[in-house]
Simulated scan of single mutants.
Amino acid sequence: MSRLQCPRCTRPTERCLCALIPCLPSRTRVLILQHPSEVRHALNTARLAALGLSNAQLLVGEVFEALPALLQQPGYRACLLFPGEQVQPLMPYDKSCSELPLLLVVPDGTWRKARKLLHVNPQLANLPRVALPEGLSSRYRLRKAPMPGALSTLEAIVAALNTIEAPTCFDALLKPFEALIEGQIEAMGAQTYQRNHAQSDTAL
């Protein structure tokens, strides 16, 4: 028999994260495009980001027919948080001028699935690309990062907003993420975690 799930955070009811999820306003609008393969992932961090930000939207799919209209929302300038040629570093808003806030588009999936989203939605490939600051490391202690600086979707969004909207801090978004990781470590047992993950944890 399957366990009851919280309809909001989709975690088992006895491990519901809703009490830890904030509701943070942001000048930046965040549009998360989630590949369907991520929906049932144990660490669905994109959902946590969408729940914790009042100015965020999460769409699930491969081809997004509404994307052209979403990218042209009045009052925003769209950019894609994804590596590539001519990528620009994220910079804090210039408070001395009236520049439009960003519509930050964030693909959510493995690197292969995220690239597929760009391929089947050509509007994404045409967006200016932005990158996170260098030297960041993930708090995801249950999985070795595929490359230096690789973060979960939630961590990437937090790092981006902390950069763009400094000195405003969005670290409160990470509280349910950290609780989720602690819960999984507890479920697997200390010995199993130490044997399989502790070495990579120290490396971070």
Rank of each mutant, 00 (worst) to 15 (best):
G109P: 08
Q5G: 02
L100V: 07
I185C: 14
F64L: 12
P128A: 02
H119P: 00
M1I: 12
M188C: 07
R141I: 01
A172S: 14
D108N: 11
A19Y: 01
G109L: 06
A56G: 07
C16I: 13
T202D: 01
G135R: 04
V158S: 11
A156I: 12
Q199S: 11
T168I: 14
L80W: 07
F64G: 13
Y193H: 09
R29A: 13
L117G: 05
P128R: 03
P92M: 04
A125D: 15
I164P: 11
A187Q: 09
A179P: 01
N126M: 04
R141F: 00
F64Y: 15
A131H: 06
R40N: 13
P148K: 08
E99W: 01
R15Q: 15
V87Q: 12
G135A: 01
A187Y: 00
S152F: 04
G75E: 08
G84L: 00
E178Y: 14
A198V: 01
T45Q: 08
M188D: 08
R3M: 12
P146I: 03
G149R: 07
S54Q: 15
L58R: 13
L204Y: 07
P7F: 08
R112A: 15
E85R: 13
G61N: 08
L154E: 00
P148G: 08
E65D: 14
Q194C: 07
P133A: 03
P148I: 04
N55H: 14
L102F: 11
T168R: 15
R3Q: 15
S96A: 13
K175N: 12
T168Y: 13
Q123D: 12
S152I: 03
R143P: 04
Q194E: 14
N196M: 05
L81T: 07
S152D: 02
S138C: 03
E178M: 07
A49P: 00
L132Y: 03
V63T: 15
T153Y: 09
A50M: 04
L80A: 05
E99K: 01
R129N: 02
P92K: 05
P167S: 09
G149P: 10
V130Q: 06
P101N: 10
G52D: 11
M147W: 07
S98D: 14
N44Y: 07
A150E: 10
M147S: 12
L136T: 01
L70Q: 14
L136P: 02
S2D: 14
A131K: 09
T192K: 10
L59N: 10
E134S: 07
L81M: 10
G149T: 10
S152V: 05
C97S: 12
V39R: 10
H119W: 09
A78L: 06
A159E: 14
P176N: 05
L118M: 12
P74C: 02
T202L: 08
K113N: 15
K113G: 02
Q184M: 08
